[in-house]
């Protein structure tokens, strides 16, 4: 029985989390790093909902997930605005080339 036990959801979210982590580690492209962050946030959301379904049997995990979704939306909007601005400045979205603040 996969769908009504806790562990399959935790394993799924662990795999998703590690994929997001890998994207953040290996990519140099700012938009790809943002996609990695979104994967990690989704993995955390699955964990919260699974725990509130099996361990708590209530809705506070779902409320936390709604706040995570709100945070992810505002983070994506601001991050993409910054990336577009960076692209206009240095004509590239490679994070290694954004060195203007280096001392």
């Amino acid at each position: 029985m996969f769908y009504n036990s806790l562990e399959p959801y935790l394993v799924l979210s662990a795999i998703l989390f590690v994929l997001g982590l890998l994207a953040m580690f290996t990519k140099r492209n700012a938009i790809s790093i943002l996609m990695g962050v979104e994967l990690v946030l989704n993995a955390a959301c699955i964990n919260f909902v699974a725990f509130s379904r099996f361990v708590e049997n209530g809705i506070s995990g779902q409320l936390v997930t709604i706040f995570i979704i709100i945070l992810a939306a505002s983070e994506a909007a601001v991050a993409l605005a910054i990336i577009l601005h960076l692209y206009r400045h240095i004509n590239s979205i490679n994070v290694d080339e954004a060195t203007q603040l280096e001392g």
Partner: peptide, 8 residues
């Protein structure tokens, strides 16, 4: 894990 319910 302290599972309280599996069927909901």
């Amino acid at each position: 894990w302290q599972i309280v319910t599996t069927t909901q």
